[in-house]
Design a protein around this nucleic acid. Structure first.
Lengths: 187, 187
DNA sequence: TCTTATATATACAGGTCTGTATATAGATTT
DNA sequence: AAATCTATATACAGACCTGTATATATAAGA
């Protein structure tokens, strides 16, 4: 990938995260990235295309980091569930954390026909599905139910931490997750 | 309050809910409400002012309905906590439910200096504070912590139900809340 | 009937934003 | 040196949106 293209992607990710997607114009993006609109539109067919690539890259980076981390640091399936929020916190508090676009994007693009809304929803669904598969491996009865509960807590906490660092949301989300997981395991 | 003004408020609430705030122009609002821009700008100084009034009315209606419901249907403080999500579900599934603006608005207006963002955040904080006061009355140790956990689950579930009716989010949110409350009460 | 208040109809100014057109500069290859 | 590829600089068309200006209609009260 071209150096300019990845520079644009990084800058766009940061600006979308801090100022919101709709309130960030392409002029601002190219100005911060130190290039011009002509170059941006060479690598991305439209602003929407840029948004989609930003979301895709963010989700891929997170998912691959997380599953690698879980696979190498936890053997038993129940262990993976337990450590899930530990690693999510590690990801969110890491210095190069650039936000988790898919959590907010569907709220900024409420129209269900919007490709951005659709991708964002799909990514949420995929993450929930991943948690559900972990729960299934851990022999939990209602795996989908637990996955739904955990993803509600997780997405809310990440969004809270994104909006206000040190809100304590992640800390209490971890505690709640532990209680819910333990409760599901003993059933 | 003028009949036209309240008509505009209702229509705006619905459109903001279904299409999003930013993607709903004032032209659309007045067209659906069967009036004109001149009238809208007589009752509201700006579109932002209209948004703020929509948010305020929604929050007030919900809060006063909820506390009245809790006060008349539950005696013991711990009962109120237990029944909280029952009533929230009743509110959300009631036929005249028009969405809960304050949950999504801060995501659609990420700029912290935006009055809409500020009001939305303040309303979230007030609701969390209300849950915390219920928890305190029920002699729960870490009332703020439980309130944070419950509001994460609640806001996520309502948003999920808003976006997709019958997603089951509310059902599992209730279950999770019960587990967390019970766990807090026995400590 | 005359006046006054309220609502309508419509046009438009002024701003923002996306995406493209045009012209130019630098660098690499042939 | 000529040609080609990549990036810059800048201007601008076209769309959309908010908020206002202007002219007209309608209804009620004095």
């Amino acid at each position: 990938m071209s150096s300019l293209k990845s520079k644009i992607l990084i800058v766009a990710t940061d600006l979308f995260q801090t100022r919101g997607i709709n309130s960030t114009g392409v002029d601002t993006i190219v100005a911060v990235a130190g290039t011009t609109k002509m170059t941006l539109y060479k690598y991305f067919t439209s602003k929407e295309n840029l948004i989609l690539e930003v979301l895709e890259k963010g989700h891929q980076d997170f998912q691959s980091w997380l599953s690698e981390k879980l696979n190498s640091n936890a053997k038993k399936p129940s262990e993976k569930l337990q450590k899930l929020f530990e690693f999510i916190e590690e990801w969110v508090t890491s210095p190069n954390f650039r936000g988790m676009g898919f959590i907010k994007a569907s709220a900024e693009f409420p129209n269900e026909e919007s490709p951005v809304h659709q991708l964002s929803s799909e990514q949420s669904r995929q993450f929930r599905q991943y948690i559900s598969s972990l729960a299934t491996e851990a022999n939990i009865q209602d795996a989908d139910g637990l996955a739904l509960q955990l993803s509600l807590i997780f997405e809310g906490a990440v969004q809270a931490e994104q909006m206000k660092r040190g809100s304590g949301a992640m800390k209490y989300a971890k505690k709640a997750a532990k209680i819910l997981i333990d409760s599901s395991l003993t059933n």
